[in-house]
């Protein structure tokens, strides 16, 4: 119990400060950071302009998918080097020699990544609120008769799905990072597997069959179909914007994918804790004719 408390009062929470400072402070930035920042800013502006010109449900759909997609790239970008990068830059020894347990290091890194994710989600929250609570323009609702957000709890589900999915992605990035020697390899593996799970695998599955129950169950676990399912529910009586509402009626309630992501997060974090020191004691190639013979 005390060990658990220790873990949560991780001294590595200073890592969070460092990560946020890195994102916020443009004088220290390297090219990629600036690019990521510029991209986010641009996206934000486009959304702001767009959001004011469309009706609520369209805004909700766009902001949900944009945020989800942004986080699919942002989370690995923030965390792929969490441990592999420290190994590569030889800063790892200082953490390894400090009085930190493996789980404190992992949780420090995780919370640093998640603070950035939360910052982004917070930045997007006005759009979510706007899409839910903005009074409907009667003229607009005439032209799009079925686009009221009548079920705000589904907006909450969408936000939860996105949050828990990026938690899972953050934990997964840390796992791959703690298992890699090079940050670049880690980044490649994370993005590759992400593409496989979110794009290639679902396409492949739907090519074989969309009727089989297990196929539909598996697909329902994808954050994209979960979010689009919730979108359909939020905008009651409509399948106008719901991307997959015909093909994939909501099989499982939206909280089940969330729970799945949370379980996956915990598993990844535990596994990272176990594997974090894998490179510390490795044996480099030793010739058979050792010098002590």
């Amino acid at each position: 119990m005390i060990r658990l408390m220790d873990t949560f009062e991780s001294p590595l929470l200073g890592e969070r400060k460092r990560a946020i400072r890195k994102i916020m402070n443009p004088t220290t930035s390297k090219g990629t950071n600036t690019a990521i920042r510029a991209l986010i800013l641009l996206l934000y502006l486009v959304l702001a302009v767009y959001g004011l010109s469309v009706d609520n449900s369209a805004l909700l759909a766009v902001i949900s998918f944009a945020l989800l997609t942004a986080l699919c790239f942002l989370t690995p970008a923030l965390l792929h080097s969490a441990i592999a990068g420290e190994r590569e830059k030889r800063t790892w020894d200082f953490l390894a020699v400090a009085p930190l347990t493996a789980s404190q290091i992992i949780l420090g890194k995780f919370s640093a990544g998640m603070s950035a994710v939360l910052m982004l989600m917070l930045a997007c929250s006005p759009f979510f609120l706007m899409s839910t609570f903005r009074p409907v323009d009667p003229e607009m609702s005439l032209s799009y008769p079925t686009t009221f957000v009548t079920q705000p709890q589904y907006v909450l589900y969408i936000a939860l799905t996105i949050l828990t999915f990026s938690m899972a992605l953050a934990a997964f990035s840390i796992l791959i990072s703690s298992r890699s020697r090079r940050a670049f390899t880690a980044q490649g593996v994370i993005l590759g597997l992400e593409a496989l799970v979110l794009l290639i695998f679902p396409t492949f599955l739907s090519a074989i069959s969309t009727d089989r129950i297990y196929v539909r169950l598996l697909t329902a676990l994808s954050p994209y179909s979960s979010v689009s399912g919730s979108l359909d529910r939020a905008v009651e009586g409509s399948d106008f914007y719901g991307v997959g509402s015909d093909a994939l009626p909501m099989l499982i309630p939206p909280l089940i994918p969330c729970a799945t992501y949370l379980i996956f997060t915990v598993l990844c974090l535990i596994w990272s804790e176990r594997t974090i020191r894998f490179a510390d004691n490795d044996v480099r190639f030793v010739k058979a004719r050792a010098r002590n013979s």
Binding site: P11, G14, F94, A98, P99
Partner: peptide
């Protein structure tokens, strides 16, 4: 240094 001072409690 502050980062590490924090780590060392």
């Amino acid at each position: 240094l502050d980062f590490f001072a924090n780590i060392y409690g």
